[in-house]
Amino acid sequence: MTSRQEKRLIRRLKQRDEQAFLTIVTRYQHKVYNVVYRMLGDPHEAEDLAQEVFITVLKNIDSFRGESQFSTWLTRIAINHSKNRLKFLKRRAADRMQPIEDTPEGAMMFNPLGSALPRPDNQAMGHQLERAMQNALGALDPEHREVVVLRDIENLSYQEIGDITGLTAGTVKSRLFRARSALKEELSKQYDD
């Protein structure tokens, strides 16, 4: 989709054109879902939250002035929703005296491999690695997680990550360095266990 087509689509969306909205959802659904899933680590939570992201887009499309790319704006909404959901899940777990390990986030934080990890003889190694990496991601704090997701999974530039997070490029780089270091530590811990 060219920039001009996208602008036209957004203009139509601002006019409450449902077909334009559905086109945008169809086009960006996987990107949004992927970001949200990597942030939350739970497919059900991710699906629900990704839907909320698009509803937020619809509600707030008038505030999109085209100063950044639409996909950047959309990703910022997805990241902010994800961080809020993580806070909510953590608070809910605390309110209910529910062990944090029982929440999707907690499962990743406190049980990175354990019984949840499929046995190697049942699953391919790639699947194990995927699971281990997702668990390690879940063990990062949300600020570190977001830069890893945006840079290493979404392949965004430092400028785009800065637009989304509000950080300078230098801060993004140093934070990413520390996030990757922490991720390496988490993975090492899992495999040492």
Binding site: Q29, R38, A46, E47, A50, Q51, I153
Partner: peptide
């Protein structure tokens, strides 16, 4: 991290 496969939204997402 970069080798992680993209996660796709469910078929009935839209």
């Amino acid at each position: 991290v970069q080798s992680l496969q993209m996660k796709f939204a469910p078929d009935d997402f839209v």
